[in-house]
């Protein structure tokens, strides 16, 4: 998959990562939407790829932002991103009333707008004086919104508001068993928020390497996708849910093994059942 190509290079500038992540995310969301307009739901797993694209982008943004020392932990940035992202996402999804094709782009733009406000507030009103703050929070809100849309698409196969707010139970339209009514969006929210902050937070330290952190972002994305794929058994057809699950498990296993290999490459030493020695003191 195209996702893995960029991870093999080191020192990719942030802007390039951002464009790659955003393009992967938007293209995958459109593929998922093509599936729904054709009336098939087995393209739902592309939502997971969209979430991974967004996470790679957000991970790079968090790295940039948190290198300034924002006074509180890295995880709070993930929470802020998804707290604002969920608001932008749901408004964007209502625009499916106009056309389903504008929803992903609207999520991106609305996320940027809401995040721009929050970033400006932090930098000017709260006087944080961090040069990248405004831009970073805008990007993070957009990332949150796209990742939530992707995870929601895995679970339900849809991105439009009507489709995620209703659920067809034996021919009767019910609301309390829908993605929104049953609160499954809360699962996407938390999965995304932790997956967004984890790669940089986990690889924090003087020996942090971009390819390892990015591989962890991919791993976190596939791991989140596994969970959403399991939940999707309640929403989409059996075959679509199995496709999502198999794709997610294979993707996760491959990225996990690669991440462990990269950690082995970067580690000082790799010991099994051996004591540490204090000789270097």
């Amino acid at each position: 998959m195209s996702v893995k190509i960029e991870a093999s290079h080191d020192g990719i500038p942030h802007n390039k990562v951002m464009v790659i992540g955003a393009v992967i995310s938007l293209v995958s969301l459109y593929i998922a939407i093509i599936g729904t307009t054709l009336g098939v739901d087995y393209l739902a797993f592309f939502g997971g790829i969209a979430a991974i694209g967004a996470l790679i982008w957000g991970n790079s943004t968090i790295k940039k932002l948190c290198s300034y020392g924002i006074g509180t932990g890295v995880p709070s940035a993930g929470m802020l991103a998804f707290g604002s992202g969920v608001i932008a996402l749901l408004f964007a999804s209502t625009l499916s009333g106009i056309s389903i094709w504008i929803v992903p782009v609207a999520a991106l733009i609305l996320g940027l707008v809401v995040g721009l406000f929050l970033g400006w507030i932090s930098n000017s009103v709260l006087n944080m004086k961090i040069p990248v703050m405004t831009r970073s929070l805008a990007e993070l809100a957009a990332v949150g919104s796209l990742a939530l849309m992707g995870l929601g698409a895995v679970a339900t196969g849809f991105v439009g508001f009507m489709d995620i707010a209703t659920f067809d139970l034996l021919g009767v339209t019910v609301y309390n068993a829908s993605y929104l009514g049953a609160g499954i969006i809360a699962v996407s929210f938390m999965l995304g928020a932790i997956a967004l902050q984890h790669p940089f937070n986990a690889c924090l330290g003087p020996g942090e390497k971009q390819d390892r952190t990015n591989m962890l972002a991919i791993e976190c994305g596939f791991l989140s996708m596994i969970v959403m794929a399991v939940i999707s058994f309640a929403f989409v057809s059996l075959i679509a849910a199995w496709i999502s699950l198999v794709v997610a498990v294979i993707g996760w296993a491959v990225s996990y093994v690669k991440y462990v290999a990269l950690s082995k490459r970067d580690a000082a030493s790799w010991l099994d059942a051996k004591p540490f020695s204090d000789s270097e003191e």
Binding site: L80, V86, L126
Partner: peptide, 22 residues
């Protein structure tokens, strides 16, 4: 309830994190 709940949680997190930055 689902919509209001997730929005209330989301907005709470946004305000709490901004205050924590402060």
């Amino acid at each position: 309830v689902g919509l209001a709940g997730i929005f209330a949680i989301g907005m709470f997190l946004v305000i709490a994190v901004l205050s924590a930055y402060n």
